[in-house]
Each structure stands twice: as C-alpha cells, then as structure tokens.
C-alpha cells in the first residue's frame, strides 16, 4: 500500500525526519509512538502533502505511484486521509457543504458517479450515527466552537464519509473522554478491512487496547528506532522511552 524509503524532511534548514523506512501493506494497522517533538506529526504532514517541508532525500510510493509528486488534494483523491492532531476551525464553511463538494470531487476523480442529494443524506445519517456525532455539529461551520473532543470526532466522521484506503490518525485519542475513545475506536474498527490500512499515532497504549495494531514503531529524533508487535506498546507504557534510547545509543 504505502512504502516509505529513507525519507528525510527539513523545515527552514532543520532536518526533522532523518531517514524513515516504513512499509505498510493493505489491511494492516501500524502504530507510531514516540516522544514529543520526535517528528510524528511531521511525518503525517509530509505524507498528506503539506508544503512547508522540504523533502531532501528518499521516496514514498502509494500503490506504486509517487506520492511526493502529488498535491494534497490528489493524495486525498487517491485515498489518503489525515485526521489532524489539531483540527483547524474554519468559520463560515459549513461542514456538510464542504464534505459534499469534497466527496463529489473525489468521486469525479475516481470516475465514480456523483452522489445524489438523497444518497448523500443517507450516508450522512449513517456515518454520523457511527461516530455518534451530534446532529447539530454537522450543520455548523467546520470545527468552529467545537470542543477538543468534538473536533476529533468530526475528523473521524469525515474519514467515515470519505472512505479512504489509507488513514493516518494523528493523536486522535488525545482529548477524548473514555466514551468518546470507544466510539472513535468503534468507527475505526468498523472500517477495517483487508484493503484499508491505518497509521495510528498515539502516546497511549489505551487506544491500542481498542484498535489492535499489527505493528508498533517507535519514532525518536526523526527515525524509527524500534519496531515490534502490540506488546511493544505495553512495554513503552510501563517503561517509557529511556530504555530504547539507551539501546539505540
């Protein structure tokens, strides 16, 4: 599905990603953990197509296509989704209107038929029920005045609507109460299938209790320094990152 090779990225001359190698196959769920500032969100942004970063080395292929050559919207149209660590508020842009436009642009790109208003409404109902998003939130401006948890839920709701093939979730669990966490996990799990992959960035083992990853990676100082199974997350929760740093040193 996605193959990241020796990826280096800098911002304003500072190298933040220092050679990332990561391969995620269709149907797999990978988790990335790592200390604050290690580059997790940077990796997510670079994959999603944010232009602030300069890619100095390496490559990323997405189903055989060169991901780094694509504009952010093309990546979305190809099936990539990023749930943001800090979803922005966009006053004046209605959640529903923009989703409808996005969905139809994506469908047009994929050569699918455009959604009828009726189909869209059905989807809207179904998917917002899935993440138990308060009906009123859909009709408001994107994230405007939403609580931290509501913003995260809105992102997952959008993911459910857009049905990506590869979803990156950047600390979707932070700021969620226990119930919301379960709901979000339920949403993700219901979308899991053999063709769809996830990259889950988190600081807490707790989320991984709900969404069982196939692999857990540790990102530290711009590199993946350790990879293991779900048990690695448990160990990190218990011991922190110091032992890995020592191991690496």
């Amino acid at each position: 599905m996605i193959n990241i090779k020796n990826l280096h990225a800098s911002v304003e001359g500072n190298e933040i990603l220092k050679g990332i190698d990561l391969r995620i196959n269709a149907g797999e769920v990978h988790a990335i953990m790592g200390p604050n500032g290690s580059g997790k969100s940077t990796l997510a942004s670079v994959l999603a197509g944010k232009e602030d970063y300069e890619i100095t080395e390496g490559s990323v292929s997405f189903d055989g296509k060169n991901l780094l050559d694509m504009d952010a919207d093309i990546r979305a149209k190809e099936g990539l989704f990023l749930a943001f660590q800090y979803p922005v508020e966009i006053p004046g842009v209605s959640n529903v209107n923009f989703l409808k436009l996005a969905l139809n642009e994506i469908r047009a790109y994929r050569g699918q038929e455009l959604m009828t208003a009726r189909e869209f409404l059905t989807q809207l109902k179904e998917k917002s029920a899935l993440v138990e998003l308060d009906g009123k939130l859909k009709d408001r401006s994107v994230n405007e005045g939403f609580s931290g948890g509501e913003k995260k839920r809105n992102d997952i709701f959008q993911m459910a609507m857009l049905e990506p093939r590869f979803a990156i979730m950047d600390e979707t669990d932070s700021g969620l109460d226990i119930d919301a966490l379960r709901i979000v996990a339920k949403g993700v799990n219901s979308m899991r299938n053999k063709d769809r992959s996830f990259l889950i960035i988190t600081h807490y083992q707790r989320l991984l209790d709900y969404i069982k990853p196939d692999f857990v990676h540790v990102l530290s100082d711009g590199k993946i320094v350790k990879t293991g199974g779900p048990e690695l997350a448990l160990k990190l929760e218990e011991k922190g990152y110091d032992w890995i740093k020592e191991e690496v040193a």
């Binding site: 504009d71 952010a72 990546r75 922005v88 966009i90 923009f98 642009e105 857009l162």
Partner: peptide
Amino acid sequence: EALFYLQCRGLNYVAAKQMLVHAF
C-alpha cells in the same frame, strides 16, 4: 492551515481557496 485542511479532504487548491474567500 485552513487551506491545507480543505485540500487534505480532497478539494483542489482553487476550490479550497474559493471556499475560504466565500466564507470570509
């Protein structure tokens, strides 16, 4: 940031920009 958010959801650059101008 808002522009990037909209693009990440599949809106092309021009459409995303217009949407923000429209909102403003």
